[in-house]
């Protein structure tokens, strides 16, 4: 079990945490931007227009069936050339995570909206509420409760998927770990074990609380 001293070297943990911050930042911005996209996508999916439905179907199915890494490659290498964008690796990651998160969240929004029983709409109607009041005060709050647990789970998936950013060369926590390992290759040959072990638990301690929150919400709101 020797080699653990690498973790005590000055600068190792601060550097890992600064890498982790990049990870969290990419995940956070992606989650936040996914929310409006998801609401829009979810609303579009409940629309009765054949063309809109078909387009949304293809979008959702394509995003869902492609591996996220493949989507990252398509955005990073493909879009950059096609639209002559100067899309850096971080930008490509955020773009892909928002398109993916938006599609998944949109499906949750659609499912939640469709799960509100018809009698709720009818009760609101006979009380004289107009369609916007019905949506805003009756339907949306209930739909929100129903989709929140799954949405928190989606956020943990986005955090985990952020790890792929390393493969496009973004200097996030894994890449920082690799740099530390490379720099200490001769002094601490055991570094890979400890550094990757630490990164493993860093991800765990971000994602696990989110999972617990999701499960708690699910239990608490299940009976409504």
């Amino acid at each position: 079990m020797h080699g653990v001293e690498i973790l005590l070297q000055p600068g190792v943990f601060p550097r890992l945490f600064s890498g982790l911050w990049v990870t969290v930042w990419i995940a956070g911005i992606s989650v936040i931007l996914s929310i409006p996209v998801g609401l829009l996508v979810g609303w579009l999916m409940t629309i009765r227009n054949g063309l809109v439905r078909a387009v949304m179907r293809v979008y959702l199915d394509f995003i869902r069936i492609m591996p996220q890494l493949a989507l990252l490659f398509i955005a990073f290498y493909g879009f950059a050339r096609a639209f002559d964008w100067n899309l850096d690796a971080t930008g490509a990651c955020v773009l892909v995570f928002v398109l993916w998160g938006g599609a998944e969240l949109g499906d949750l929004v659609r499912g939640a909206l469709e799960s509100i029983p018809r009698s709720q709409y009818e009760s609101a109607y006979v009380l004289g509420l107009d369609s916007w009041q019905t949506f805003r005060r009756i339907i949306l709050p209930q739909a929100f409760r129903r989709m929140l647990p799954a949405s928190v789970n989606l956020a943990t998936r986005i955090v985990k998927t952020t790890s792929l950013a390393a493969l496009l060369g973004v200097i996030e926590v894994i890449k920082v770990g690799q740099q530390i390992i490379d720099a200490n290759r001769f002094l601490y040959p055991q570094a890979t074990l400890w550094i990757y072990g630490v990164i493993f638990f860093m991800y765990f301690f971000i994602c696990w609380p989110l999972s617990l929150v999701a499960r708690h919400l699910e239990k608490r709101w299940a009976h409504d």
Binding site: T156, K160, S163, I174, Q190, L193, S211
Partner: peptide, 23 residues
């Protein structure tokens, strides 16, 4: 289950492929 669900596969693979040989 908690450990496996809440960590990315990439990190798991790096640990298995680069870390475990040190053990």
């Amino acid at each position: 289950i908690e450990l496996s669900r809440n960590t990315p596969l990439l990190v798991q693979l790096y640990f298995l492929y680069f870390g475990l040989p040190k053990l």
